[in-house]
Design a protein around this nucleic acid. Structure first.
Lengths: 240, 240
DNA sequence: TGCACCACTTGGTATATACCAAGTGGACCA
DNA sequence: TGGTCCACTTGGTATATACCAAGTGGTGCA
């Protein structure tokens, strides 16, 4: 199920293994228990244990080397471009958001252009620290057209803003375009993300459109470069 | 298996469904047969049919909406992570390649897995510096299955290898998956790219597939982070 | 001592089965 | 006619089982 009432066992087991890797500081390339051992140890079948490891593999947290076993991967969280919360859900991880500020403001020219707003139209802006499983991963600045989102500044901002868009405003994100580039984190960003000095970041400038092609969100997300990676699947343009 | 002698049934079934979607021009959001029907129709168990659909789901070709069924996804709109040459062309810039080496070699386990090769099968590898308008931008290591590309080591490598694939070997790149991450350039890479010390790079690990879903190319491209950015367009999964 | 070989373990594939939660659509009742 | 409700179908989860290919490591032979 998409929204199971009870946590599936394989998700729970994956969380357990994930915590163990983080908690015991298992070094990259450490050999993990085999699927059979893991299943026996936690009272689930091998296929369920396998599903848990597959989840972690898709997150990039472990890798498999048949017939040797499953190993701890170099740390990095993998993202598809889109919603932070929904990406976390897909990976069975706990997304969280800490609000730094939220306000109605005059958009910058860039933001106004991205959202296709006219002169004088305002935006609702959110600035949040996003984390997964308690680890700060990204600094997110999100802009919505104010006309489209009356009252959004008063709603809870712990979770997915896309969910709010859908449920409260009937707006459906359909496509997203993003530009990824590498940057050097400034002091403030370093502090918020708990990163050391001279750490690089990945800047993801994102525009999201609804089914009618209207731009409904513009965002500037800064990820810790050492913790995030981005996966892209695309159709190749046919040759001319 | 890592390098199956026989194609797994779920891969074959996925290819069949993939071709059907492309061949019959199934419109986005068309309902596909249920997992049970698909399995029965092709003489495999539901779990195997499910595995095939999961493969297609990960490719972004289909999406699931329980309990309604599995549907054809929206096609990806644009592609900006792929062929260096073709991207340069699109931007009206002069792409160039300087060959560092090209050889037939035993693939690494990673490369073998990515290309789906059996033990003992070899690859043709190219290592090139790519530049645009005379500015070095990327270090590219590209692997092709040797069986698929006889004699490719002797062709000119100043331009697009994809063009060679199409014209000489009749192989058509259809989809591409890539993972982008941030790395620190080593000394050799810095030298080749004309970058200063402690410069960061963007590592793009890319697999390209033909229309049959066969992996025809695997590449590790290292871009100067200060010179490159990547544009991504993605279809958002419809809401639950 | 050195090497060939084989048993064992691993993840990968495949099947059969079972139950669950949740939309869908039609039957049925008011 | 209009609305309620339930059977059916769907994908999601979970188990048990079986066989395969391929590294690993130890045994045992030359």
């Amino acid at each position: 199920m998409l929204a199971p009432v009870t946590t599936p066992r394989y998700v729970a087991l994956a969380a357990l293994v994930r915590d163990r890797i983080a908690g015991e500081q298992l070094a990259p390339h450490t050999l993990l228990p085999s699927e059979r051992e893991l299943g026996d140890a936690h009272g689930v079948s091998r296929m369920t244990a396998r599903q848990a490891l597959t989840l972690l593999e898709r997150e990039g947290l472990v890798y498999r080397r048949p017939p040797r076993g499953t190993f701890v991967a170099e740390p990095r969280v993998r993202f598809h471009v889109g919603s932070f919360s929904e990406e976390a859900d897909r990976q069975g991880r706990r997304p969280a958001a800490r609000l730094l500020w939220a306000e109605r403001q005059e958009p910058s020219p860039d933001t106004r252009r991205a959202l296709g707003l006219a002169e004088g139209e305002e935006v609702h802006a959110f600035h949040r620290v996003r984390s997964m499983d308690g680890v700060p991963l990204a600094l997110e600045t999100t802009y919505f057209p104010a006309d489209l989102t009356p009252g959004i500044l008063d709603v809870g901002v712990e979770g997915s803003l896309w969910a709010v868009l859908r449920e409260r405003y009937g707006v459906d994100p359909a496509t997203s375009t993003a530009v990824l580039e590498s940057i050097i984190l400034d002091d403030v960003s370093q502090a918020h993300l708990g990163a050391g000095s001279a750490t690089t970041g990945i800047l993801l400038t994102r525009s999201t459109y609804d089914t009618a092609g209207r731009c409904i969100e513009h965002a500037r997300d800064v990820y810790r470069a050492d913790r995030a990676s981005f996966e892209v699947t695309a159709t190749v343009a046919p040759p001319d």
